[in-house]
């Protein structure tokens, strides 16, 4: 279980998180949506321990990770798999090397066991036969699928997806969503997705949380969110320009 309790974070004078309170249950998939630059990635970075809050706590399975020393924090990180926005694949390694890397560094599996696991992971994400390609030779969608395979290779309890479909076409986006559902069914992880793919992400997720002005303004099932009366949620779902979410000022 992941819990955010009164989480605050500012960068210089800019307040990004302004008292986040959210509980994510075991094995559920929750999607956090909100406007670009609204602090969604900042929130996810607090789960990994890449950022420390100015105030508040992040509890993973009851342990406040914001107060842990580096070694203890690493033990928590071993439970995590992360799919970064751009994939964050290591340029110097091929697809096989990228997926095998966490296994080689964090487990005592032998070479053939690692090879077997990597090949299975590649098959799961539909990239069989691509193991010798380098990240630069792959399309955006392929890179994200490799990143997903790498995030899942250690069979983590929690998987964080930072905009898993940004920049992908609608067909690849749908197949990425199906992939998330299928892997969730297979591995049973707790999933936290940051996504703007409204309403298509509703097919994948159990609950949706809306982040606006640094706080969670609404949490609910996709149906509840679709029927929400909150002005920010309504504006975000319909993509309207008028509303509490500040639209881009074209005259500036």
């Amino acid at each position: 279980m992941i819990e955010f309790i009164d989480l605050h974070k500012s960068f210089d004078s800019q307040r990004v998180l302004n008292g986040i309170n959210l509980t994510i249950a075991d094995k559920e998939i929750i999607t956090i949506m909100g406007k670009s630059g609204g602090g969604k990635s900042v929130l996810i970075k607090h789960i990994i321990g890449l950022l420390k809050p100015d105030k508040g706590s992040v509890l993973i399975d009851g342990v406040d990770i914001t107060k842990l020393p580096p070694r203890e924090l690493d033990k928590i990180r071993e439970k995590l798999g992360v799919l970064f926005q751009g994939g964050a694949l290591f340029d110097s390694m091929n697809v096989f090397g990228n997926i095998a890397f966490p296994l080689m560094e964090k487990t005592k599996l032998n070479k053939s066991e690692i090879e077997e696991r990597v090949m299975q992971a590649l098959e799961d994400v539909g990239l069989k036969g691509m193991e010798k390609k380098y990240p630069a030779e792959l399309s955006g969608g392929m890179r994200k699928r490799v990143a997903l395979a790498r995030a899942l290779i250690t069979e983590p309890n929690i998987v964080l997806f930072d905009e898993p479909t940004t920049g992908l076409d609608p067909i690849i986006t749908s197949s990425m969503h199906r992939l998330i559902s299928a892997t969730h069914e297979k591995y049973g992880y707790t999933g936290v997705i940051i996504s703007h793919e409204v309403p298509r992400i509703f097919e994948v997720t159990d609950r949706v949380a809306m982040l606006h002005n640094g706080v969670i303004v609404e949490v609910g099932t996709p149906e509840e969110i679709k029927n929400s009366t909150d002005a920010a949620v309504r504006q975000f779902i319909t993509g309207g320009i008028g509303g509490p979410i500040e639209a881009l000022n074209m005259t500036q």
Binding site: R77, G86, K106
Partner: peptide, 17 residues
Amino acid sequence: GMMRISEQIDALTAMAL
């Protein structure tokens, strides 16, 4: 620097490395 801006360093940290 390129590893930093493409989040590869964050990926290492996230893997507890």
